[in-house]
Deep mutational scan, measured.
Amino acid sequence: MAAGGDHGSPDSYRSPLASRYASPEMCFVFSDRYKFRTWRQLWLWLAEAEQTLGLPITDEQIQEMKSNLENIDFKMAAEEEKRLRHDVMAHVHTFGHCCPKAAGIIHLGATSCYVGDNTDLIILRNALDLLLPKLARVISRLADFAKERASLPTLGFTHFQPAQLTTVGKRCCLWIQDLCMDLQNLKRVRDDLRFRGVKGTTGTQASFLQLFEGDDHKVEQLDKMVTEKAGFKRAFIITGQTYTRKVDIEVLSVLASLGASVHKICTDIRLLANLKEMEEPFEKQQIGSSAMPYKRNPMRSERCCSLARHLMTLVMDPLQTASVQWFERTLDDSANRRICLAEAFLTADTILNTLQNISEGLVVYPKVIERRIRQELPFMATENIIMAMVKAGGSRQDCHEKIRVLSQQAASVVKQEGGDNDLIERIQVDAYFSPIHSQLDHLLDPSSFTGRASQQVQRFLEEEVYPLLKPYESVMKVKAELCL
């Protein structure tokens, strides 16, 4: 049975990233139509530049190519590739079939990587351009969430054990800070992308030097003109047959890092959902379990974690691919890159769409948070109580021993009897502590235990987050809708 299948058929496997999760716009960027249309555009740009620099290419040939950029006979191309065992030459023939007058000058002087690699770089750039505003929107939604809850005390956790208090907004800023680093890295790697350009079979530009009869300047002009037509500021000066596969490492490393950030955020949300302090959106008709109707599973956060793990592992592909590119190139890269580049971007696209949807509907339960604080705060307040007693004339050592005994009794009630923490009640009825009984409410005010959390939130948002989001103001209103 021949390899390949009808990918629109229910009898043929289709990647869930495309069929179930990723956005239509990201799927289109990695589609065959987008790819092969870009090949034709690159052939047109090459012909236009070659004509401008004096090669015998007519206006009629150029116009014929322009008129057929979208006229792609995919069936013919597939048949040609089956016959020739070469995808680029299959599309040269297919393009030439609908451009008979231009057929002889299509791909003039070029090698397969002229269309293959340059198209990949265009796709990487455009895919990054799709991700950047999506990530900015996630940051914006979380920034709104953090600002609104900047002063809401909550129990902090280290080692997932109760620690000092923080605020809900401050905790959210930990998430935002990681995503801001990801946004900066995505922008950097996007701006650092260079075009492969017009380089020939081993990167020496020998074929173009021959076409222009040894004119170095025209060869350099050709490279520059096509690079500018493709919208790049610069091209690699040095290439082998391909652009260095280190570029793929750079791009997928940034995406993998984004995956790590999203995994951490969504894990926190899942843990908070278990504590009943916070939940992701839950639709009115949504079913959490087929057997347990009360369940409210954090399905979206779980999906993000599941896909983020996949995204983090994909960076190993370009690392290994770059390491086995012998001399000017081997074909070890080809099949692998067809999979890992598309999957990385479709996965990143999915987790950003999902995280935006989550961040637009996060639900906080202040009463649950308050109750958990009441359970733990008495123990945390013991040092403040000791200091207040010393100020009232008591002995630190005597007070410490009193607190120690009462704390152990209260802990026994919590752990052995399943009761509430009654340390404060014990202190309130103990005559030894009568000098500070009137101060206990103040000493137990949760806001006095959150330090500068709310001020940190305000400063972080104003100095770091809002300036970073400013270039994306025009796209901030787009909502994230999930079908599944």
Rank of each mutant, 00 (worst) to 15 (best):
A2W: 04
G5N: 15
D6E: 12
G8R: 13
S9A: 12
Y13S: 13
M26W: 08
F30T: 10
F36I: 15
L46H: 06
L46C: 07
I57Y: 06
I62E: 02
Q63C: 09
L69A: 05
I72L: 04
H91A: 02
H93T: 05
T94A: 09
K101Y: 00
L121V: 08
I122R: 09
L132R: 08
L135D: 00
E148R: 04
P153R: 01
L155A: 04
G156R: 03
Q161H: 03
C172V: 03
L186R: 05
R190S: 06
D191A: 05
R194Q: 14
R196P: 10
V198F: 03
T202R: 05
A206V: 09
L211D: 03
V219N: 01
Q221T: 05
K224P: 06
K233M: 14
K233R: 08
F236G: 07
T239I: 08
G240Q: 02
K246F: 04
D248M: 06
L255F: 14
L255C: 11
L258C: 09
S261V: 05
S261C: 04
V262A: 08
H263V: 06
I265K: 11
L271Q: 01
N274M: 00
E279L: 07
E280Y: 00
I287R: 04
S289H: 00
S290F: 03
K295S: 13
R303A: 05
C304V: 10
L307G: 11
R309K: 05
A322H: 11
V324P: 04
W326G: 04
R329V: 05
L331Y: 14
D333P: 15
A335M: 00
N336H: 04
R337H: 10
R338F: 07
I339F: 11
C340G: 08
C340Q: 09
C340S: 14
L341Q: 09
L355M: 06
N357T: 02
V363P: 12
Q375Y: 13
A381D: 12
R396E: 15
Q397K: 06
D398V: 07
Q408W: 05
A411S: 01
G418T: 06
G419I: 15
L423A: 14
H442K: 01
S448L: 07
T450D: 08
R452C: 06
L461C: 11
L461A: 00
E463T: 11
E464K: 15
Y466I: 14
M476Y: 14
E481R: 11
L482N: 08
